[in-house]
């Protein structure tokens, strides 16, 4: 790892000013992703801005939503009373990620900003457009078991690895982004982007900006019927092959409203709006779940090693819906 300059920021403005001024500076929060990337030479910031002294840890009820500060720890969010009560889906998604030690370090902002786990991205001797634009995509014709089936391009077929983000996408959360001059609020689903022609950018955050909070609307009835199903190669401490966040607003056996998002399938948390719309007003039957799942798979495309996802994904969607409905 190269040596670097380390500063502790005491105000938000410190951070955004420094980020604006110095293109080689990077925020460090929990460090669980960034330190790893630096060890491998994938990231080499010359300056680290430690933001842990900022007061961005709060989780609080506001009118119509719950606001979670960007520095709230994954373990804390997962067990926060408001979250457990109103968004058990988020709690479950967080619990299924990483390990308790990592969740004790990882922050909400850092989790959103974590980079793909594509092995080619991590190995600096391999081609990778995301790490080194223009070198090609190592995974495209390489080992791509973990890779995307939705929205990928030849430029990059990586997936976003977060579990938390899948739940937040399903819950219609928003992201609060601050720069030195302004603050903006965007839909969570607009935060991450598809690979497109510039896979080196994972999201829509601009230079000089930082994440300060996420807000989750709570005026809904999804808490009773929601689940996060994560399928992976071992039963814990592993990234998802496929994950599904499913939340249903039910009235007896009827579905008023549905929310569905997937992880492990795209460059961003993947909302399944067609399937959601299909389920609206339908009976909660296995048949309907299967149909919804089939609709969700339209436009899916597999590569050499991830063909199984074309079956595993719809099966997992149907299974998650079944679990959520049965609650």
């Amino acid at each position: 790892m190269i040596n670097f300059n380390y500063v502790q920021a005491s105000t938000q403005k410190n951070v955004t000013d420094t980020l604006m001024k110095d293109g080689t500076a990077q925020i460090i929060a929990g460090g669980t992703n960034l330190v790893d990337l630096m060890k491998r030479g994938v990231a080499a910031p010359q300056k680290l801005i430690d933001i842990n002294n900022l007061s961005l840890k709060n989780i609080e009820q506001q009118k119509g939503f719950v606001r979670i500060g960007a520095l709230a720890l994954n373990s804390v969010v997962a067990e926060n009373e408001l979250v457990v009560q109103k968004f058990p889906l988020l709690s479950k998604a967080l619990q299924s990620g990483a390990s308790q030690q990592l969740r004790n370090m990882a922050t909400v902002g850092g989790n959103m900003m974590q980079r793909t786990r594509c092995s080619y991205f991590y190995d600096t001797t391999m081609p990778c457009n995301k790490r080194n634009p223009g070198t090609g995509c190592g995974a495209l014709k390489g080992y791509n078991r973990m890779h995307a089936i939705f929205g990928a391009t030849e430029n990059c077929i990586a997936v976003h690895p977060s579990d938390m983000c899948v739940a937040l996408a399903a819950l219609n959360a928003s992201v609060i982004i601050s720069s030195s001059r302004s603050e903006r609020k965007i839909a969570f689903t607009d935060f991450h982007k598809l690979a497109g022609t510039n896979p080196e950018k994972d999201n829509t955050l601009q230079r000089g900006e930082m994440i300060t909070a996420v807000e989750i609307p709570d005026a809904n009835n999804f808490a009773q019927h929601s689940t996060y199903l994560k399928i992976r190669d071992r039963s814990s401490y592993a990234f998802a092959l496929i994950s599904v966040a499913a939340a249903l607003d039910m009235n007896g056996g009827k579905i008023n409203n549905a929310r569905l998002a997937m992880g492990g399938v795209a460059h961003k948390p993947w909302r399944l709006t067609t399937a959601e719309n299909f389920l609206k007003g339908k009976a909660a039957t296995e048949e309907n779940f299967k149909q919804a799942a089939a609709l969700a798979m339209k436009d899916a495309k597999a590569y050499r090693h991830n063909n199984f996802k074309l079956t595993l994904a719809p099966n997992s969607i149907a299974e998650a819906l079944k679990i959520a409905a049965a609650m």
């Binding site: 786990r117 092995s119 001797t125 391999m126 390489g142 071992r234 039963s235 814990s236 401490y237």
Partner: peptide
């Protein structure tokens, strides 16, 4: 191993899975 390069692609404990407590 990625045969195009003869190079390991899962040479770490996150990608080469060994059993954990829950298994």
């Amino acid at each position: 191993i990625d045969d195009r390069y003869g190079r390991w692609v899962n040479n770490n404990f996150a990608d080469y899975h060994v059993p954990v407590h829950t298994d």
